[in-house]
Amino acid sequence: MNLHFTDAVIKWTLATFLVIVFAFLYMPIVHILFASLSTRPNFPYPLEFNLSSYVRLSTNTVYQSAFLNSLILASCTAVLSTAMGFLATVGVLRFGGKRALVYAIFFAAPLFVSEILLGISSMALYYLVFKLQGNMLTAIIANTVHCFSFCFLIMAAMLYKYDWRMNEAAIVCGASPLRSFVEVMLPITWPGIMGSLITAFVLSLNGLDISFYLLGATPTMPSVAWGALRYGVKPELYALLTLINLIVFVLIMGLLAAIRLKKKEA
């Protein structure tokens, strides 16, 4: 009896703590959501519903071109790093053999080098060796290095229970390696692949440190936001932040719904 009581106390203490921490994580985001909808962005209580900052954001040409650049950068990074991460995952889990651990550590290494160091060192390399100023391609590559480790870990976590004999069975039955991938492996592993695509996309969409040093004068959303900060935070920034959070939220919820649906099927 006494034991159950202690258990319950522990459980509810932990639950309270969890609620406090989640409140700490979400309060700024919700506050900004209210601020973006208010005419008094500093202290938007009582709440209002006013879309003027969103209208100003959508008509601002600087943000438009920055958004387009960020979109290109993030899409290319997502595809490239997921493809690389997939190869790395398959390589380590299936063909790694005795050296699997060594490869896994190497593939996770970019995670342990800070973004700003990656950005600065890539800039130094391109400038010193190729006399190149930053451009979109170098920014995509540097972002890919950073996102690659996340992609590798996400897919490895999702794929390590995968039974590789299924691929071999398909090949024995006469399927080409490509067909065995598309018809056997892809239907089973796509939540991991989607998770990796979304993570890489959003990380590179919002990352400033790497792109800042490799893009030169090309504006991206985080760099425009950072520039705008020097002149004080404006309600447009709050609107931008709310929109980005909304996009992330929809993507994650979509992924969750898809995973749930797949579990039901299985």
Partner: peptide, 28 residues
């Protein structure tokens, strides 16, 4: 776990702006 991921993915700059909305001189 996904609720943890969402704030993480909105990026350093934007999250700092949000935090400044809480802590800054004119913040919440």
């Amino acid at each position: 776990s996904l609720l943890l991921v969402i704030p993480f993915l909105s990026g350093e700059v934007l999250r700092l702006i949000a935090l400044q909305g809480m802590l800054g001189p004119a913040g919440l």
